[in-house]
Amino acid sequence: MKPIATTRSATGIPTGRLAVWWVMASEIVIFGGLLAAYVMHRLGHPEWSNQAIHTNTWLGALNTLVLLTSSLFAVLAHQAAEHGEGRKAARLLLATAGGALVFLVVKSFEWSHEIAAGYTLTSNTFWSFYYTAAGLHAVHVIAGLVIMLVVAADAAKNRELQRVELIGLYWHFVDIVWIFLFPLLYIAK
């Protein structure tokens, strides 16, 4: 028997997809509140630029490129799933998951250097925001990576292909959050 999220569509949108939109709506409030707090503090504390100059713009840009590319793979996986090509969708989802992994490796490298240089969660309010915002985002990347692997395993057997679109939507949202984190944490010096 198929789950209700697959078969029911009372609102004109399949229930599974509607649930993902609601998740995103709540995530906007979570990330939005955090980023709004960051922006107002940043504007009130010009001295934070003394700290912001130590973030690595090139690594931030590299991670943006990685996430944009993984989003491309996610939407191509969605397209393949629509054509009933489960194996191709699974391969593309694995490529997306690879992007998530590269993102996390770059982030680990970046953080280990910053922590070794003495910029920790408690050293300054700027760094508190930096690690909280980027850390919360990284948790979402890890969650997406795990879900993507589960969906890919099913898609490879041509099962539950509608889930490829759902994890794709979530992944694009994670990408959009980073699109805003990048200028706020790396470019505004």
């Binding site: 939109w21 995103m24 709506a25 906007i28 409030v29 709004a36």
Partner: peptide, 11 residues
Amino acid sequence: YLLVGMVALML
């Protein structure tokens, strides 16, 4: 509308 509404709450 749902997503824009959430952005409006943030603003």
